[in-house]
C-alpha cells in the first residue's frame, strides 16, 4: 500500500515536472537571465505549486497523523545557520551553471539523455562528497 501510494505520488510529481518545463535547463537558465532572454515560466511553476500546496498542507495538518504512516516527519532544525545559507548559496551557483535542480533532473532520467544521466551521476557524487566532512563532525551529520 505505502509502496503503491509512493509510486503514484512520484508519478504525479514527474508528470508535473515534465509539463512545467522544469526539466529543460535551457528554460530554467533563461528564468535566471533576467537582463536578456528572460523566460518567467519558472515563476508560474512556483505559483502553481504553492497555490495547491499551501491549502493542501493546511488540510493535511488538520489531522493528528498522516493517513498511511503513524506520524508526520518534519525537519527538526529550526534556526538560520551558516550551513543553511552557504549550502543554499552553493546550490544556486550549481543550478545557474547546469540549469538542473535535483527535482527537475530526477524524473527525466527515463529519457536516457546522456546529459541528464551525467548530471544525475555528478549530483549523487556531490551529495556523497558532502557526507565526508560530516562524518568527521558527527554533530552536523544528520540530514
Amino acid at each position: 500500500m505505502r509502496i503503491l501510494s509512493a509510486l503514484l505520488i512520484g508519478l504525479v510529481f514527474g508528470l508535473g515536472i515534465s509539463i512545467s518545463g522544469m526539466a529543460n535547463p535551457a528554460k530554467v537558465m533563461n528564468f535566471f537571465d533576467i537582463f536578456r532572454t528572460w523566460d518567467p515560466s519558472l515563476a508560474c511553476v512556483m505559483a502553481g505549486a504553492l497555490a495547491v500546496n499551501i491549502p493542501g498542507h493546511r488540510l493535511a495538518f488538520r489531522r493528528q497523523a498522516p493517513v498511511i504512516e503513524p506520524r508526520f516527519q518534519l525537519p527538526e532544525r529550526k534556526g538560520i545557520d551558516r550551513r543553511l545559507v552557504l549550502g543554499s548559496a552553493t546550490f544556486g551557483i550549481g543550478w545557474g551553471i547546469a540549469g538542473f535542480c535535483p527535482g527537475g533532473a530526477l524524473p527525466v532520467i527515463s529519457t536516457l539523455d546522456p546529459g541528464v544521466l551525467l548530471f544525475v551521476a555528478a549530483l549523487i557524487a556531490g551529495m556523497l562528497l558532502a557526507r565526508l566532512p560530516s562524518s568527521w563532525f558527527p554533530s552536523q551529520g544528520k540530514s
Binding site: 515534465s18 540549469g99 538542473f100 556531490g126
Partner: peptide
C-alpha cells in the same frame, strides 16, 4: 519532455557536483 542542456559536458559535471554538495549542506532544494 525537452531536456535541452546548452552547456559542455564538463559544465554539466561541475554544475552537478556543486548542486550535490550545496543541497546536502543546505538541507534541501527547490
Amino acid at each position: 519532455p525537452v531536456t535541452d542542456l546548452p552547456i559542455s559536458n564538463l559544465a554539466v559535471v561541475i554544475g552537478g557536483l556543486i548542486v550535490g554538495v550545496g543541497v546536502s549542506y543546505g538541507g534541501g532544494c527547490t
